[in-house]
Nucleic acid binder design. Structure first.
Lengths: 345, 345
DNA sequence: TTGAAAGCGCTAACAA
DNA sequence: TTGTTAGCGCTTTCAA
């Protein structure tokens, strides 16, 4: 029982023109008399005509929509990125279709293939924790689907990428902990095949090394599921804090892990937790309300979404085939937000 | 530079059949020889054929997608609802298109009209704070677009609705504050034209009245923008706490207002805030990390999304016109989660 | 059992 | 300047 929308044919019939005349009047409108044009436009306005975008898509082989794949919209980082994406896309006349992978490779692939089959004009994606096979993306990309990666990227596909300066962000946070007197600094991080994991790990290690500390592999804990399963985080934190040589600080590589770690800390006695310093990547806007004061690395999420979208639209609207484009990786600076009572040494 | 997907025509040409034969082989498949069917299916499988959903949509006048409008995906309540929606929709073969109104009426209308023109098969919507004119929705609904409201509904459109028991949730929270010895209880709430605002306000008032307390209109503060603008919340909280007769407790009607209020409280001295009790609606999963301990009313958000989606799909797939359907309003129970150190009297 | 042709709504090449 | 026609990919009468 769907309603019958008004079509160009209805207008043509009502006005005694052919459909093509109406079509021409409605769009560009050169090679058409001002008079006819006026009549058609007025009538279209009056009966509230809107072209059927599905028919347009079929004809033009494009949809003016872009697909987005993130792991979780509930994650403030991603919701901020999405706001950035929307801010650009809508102004450029594109619609945004948001999907979630929930950190699962299978779900991610399903989403991407659905989006591609629905003929989105391009794709913005941050890979799931679980993903280490991007061949399906590569093949879509080679077939001509424009893709821009943000946040979690891959080296295997040559296209535009927008990331935070993960190395520097991690470096700064770690060095900050060191400057505040910590020498035993653990690192709680995401799945090892994510780009952000490697970059942040490198920053962490570099800060230790530069400050004459040794990297202790026992202190590095990976969460394969990116913290989707809280127990994974709890286990990691427990291993750290109950070891013979527990760390004095933890540097955490992502949003969900950071809040998950704080939750885990609540299961320990004050004695264990007191004196422990936490620094972590997070874009949560509720950090200031937390009981546990921590230092955070904040990514310019909104801006990241904006830039990725601009780059994608540029690709979509470019006349040149993807293979001829010089791709770039934009790196945005992170911001270190200090725990209230401490200072940057 | 878009890639050329495989069409039914390619298969027909390759196999020497007509397109209609191929089409028949691919779907239903009665009135076609087993042999031909096998050949076609095998070939289609081999070259990885997928029907073009756009063409299908044009033909069938439906898209197997449902549109969702919420105020903010960053809000945990809404992201949980969306997860519930997806869990049902995907299994039923529908795709979900998420949009945000950011509490703005104009944006909401734009989104809805975009979704409708893109021919979503149905709409799930929670109204923006700013919205009090739903005539555009009514007209779409009358033209045959199935709509299911959740959370923030309207009386002006007769269709399925799924809401929490807002009255009871508010009643319970308020009574809990009373049982813990508070008599001066303020209410911080959303825009007055939202359904949830009225329902929660009624619950609040009923609890006061039942317990022999009088309703003090000075204690009721509305935030027209639903807390999108933090200053709005700050101003309201300030008015309450700096009045001659400040409240001993505040019952807060929504997620964003609850966290916003907690932020506002941090601008006051300990003396002012100490002893103040807060109870509020929120589905944030970070409450347990907050410094300020509060009692929360939690809505079954995931379930709400699931039920709303089931009802919507039922409407979409029903053969009867919308006008002949008996609509229902499902009310789900909320959960009162007590602040740690207190008990339910 | 299969094919030819029309049609979903629109645009554009070609004619008039 | 306007109309006719074909075609985007698919399904579905109607003929064969």
């Amino acid at each position: 029982m769907k309603f019958e929308p008004i079509t160009i044919k209805d207008i043509a019939k009502a006005l005694g023109f052919s459909t093509s005349t109406v079509s021409r009047a409605l769009r560009g409108g050169y090679e058409i008399s001002e008079e006819t044009k006026r009549i058609v436009l007025e009538y279209a306005e009056k009966i509230n005509y809107h072209p059927n975008p599905i028919a347009l898509s079929l004809k033009e082989r494009r949809t003016y929509s872009i697909g987005v794949v993130v792991s979780e919209i509930a994650n403030n980082f991603f919701s901020q990125v999405i706001n950035g994406i929307e801010s650009i896309a809508y102004d450029a006349g594109y619609h945004v279709i948001i999907t979630q992978s929930h950190e699962l490779h299978k779900q991610e692939k399903l989403n991407v293939e659905h989006l591609a089959s629905r003929s989105v004009d391009g794709l913005l994606i941050s890979l799931a924790s679980e993903t280490n096979d991007v061949s399906y993306l590569k093949s879509l990309n080679q077939k001509g689907l424009p893709i821009v990666f943000f946040d979690r990227t891959t080296d295997e596909i040559d296209t535009h990428k927008v990331i935070a300066n993960n190395f520097q962000g991690a470096f700064d946070a770690t060095e900050y902990l060191i400057k505040n007197g910590k020498t035993k600094i653990a690192h709680l991080t995401n799945s090892p095949h994510l780009s952000i994991t490697r970059q942040r790990l490198d920053g962490y290690k570099a800060a230790l090394t530069k400050n004459g500390l040794v990297v202790n592999e026992q202190y590095i804990k990976y969460c394969e599921q990116g913290g989707q399963d809280y127990n994974e985080i709890l286990a990691a934190v427990r291993e750290l804090l109950t070891s013979e040589n527990p760390p004095e600080a933890i540097f955490i590589a992502s949003d969900k892990l950071t809040t998950g770690c704080l939750k885990a800390l609540r299961t320990f006695s004050r004695k264990v937790v007191d004196g422990l310093s936490i620094a972590g990547f997070t874009n949560s806007n509720l950090v200031e309300l937390f009981e546990f004061s921590l230092t955070t690395v904040r990514q310019p999420a909104f801006e990241m979404g904006q830039i990725a979208t601009k780059l994608l639209i540029q690709l979509i609207e470019s006349k040149r085939p993807l293979s001829e484009i010089d791709f770039e990786t934009r790196t945005l600076q992170t911001e270190l937000i200090l725990k209230n009572q401490e200072i940057m040494a």
